[in-house]
Amino acid sequence: MNNEHAEVMEMHMPTEKIVGQTDLYSIKSSTVRTPDAMPRPIRVKAREVNVFYGSKQALFDVSIDVPERAVTAFIGPSGCGKSTFLRCFNRMNDTIEGSKVTGRIELDGADIYDGSIDVVELRARIGMVFQKPNPFPKSIYENVAYGPRIHGLASAKGDLDRIVETSLQKAGLWNEVKDRLHEPGTGLSGGQQQRLCIARAIAVSPEVILMDEPCSALDPIATAKVEELIDELRENYTIVIVTHSMQQAARVSQRTAMFHLGYLVEEGPTDKMFTNPEEKRTQDYITGRFG
């Protein structure tokens, strides 16, 4: 209970930002600090990606460019393939029995589905945050320290302590947990758990962070904190976020891609997508006519 309270106390943002559903566009323009004026270098490039689960095709010829140090949002109704596509980026689909990916996904020009790519290394470079907060059933410290430890990023205990501290600070969780680093991570509130998962992902110093509906299991206040965090993180990381909340996409992303039934419908700067979409389906979805 106290944790929840602390979270409320630390929030300095107007609540309309979270709950205001009616004036979507005005919120967006106030929260996106740097409209994507200048084109950024492309970090991840996907070309004609198809994904099959057994005989069922889940994704059709998707091509997209993910710019560096920006938030790219994938939106679309449930079952449109946006999470499937996200999971191609760090090859988490490999773990699903019977899944097959064709096409090319390049990270800095190298095809991640090439035989020479080590999945372990790839996942160290492309971190992931999941829909439901899933901290390990270990202490807060161990949760953050686990990644650096298995990858051998810290040689001394002091190094590891530093990594844990900076990661938790970047995730905005340090002040809340610094006195109880050795208590179980599962004892935190949902929002804190999700930020712990983000800290855990950051601790490995990934280049890209994938977020699969990171706020869908959180309450509005925790959601706001995580969104604020995403906005801060984009100064250092390339972020791809899947969300089915259009407001969230509008609030945190610079580029948006709209998926429907396994196809990429439209993709472009978030401003343009929400004010002047080219496709009717996008228009219908963002105005709430379906989805």
Binding site: E121, F130, N134, G147, R200
Partner: peptide, 27 residues
């Protein structure tokens, strides 16, 4: 064991064996 635990470890870049021995087996 919930699949989310395995995904958490795999997503961090743990190998299959590390996932099993560090996270799945202990629970």
């Amino acid at each position: 064991v919930p699949p989310s635990l395995r995904q958490a470890a795999l997503g961090l870049g743990a190998s299959r064996m590390q996932t099993v021995f560090h996270h799945v087996l202990p629970v």
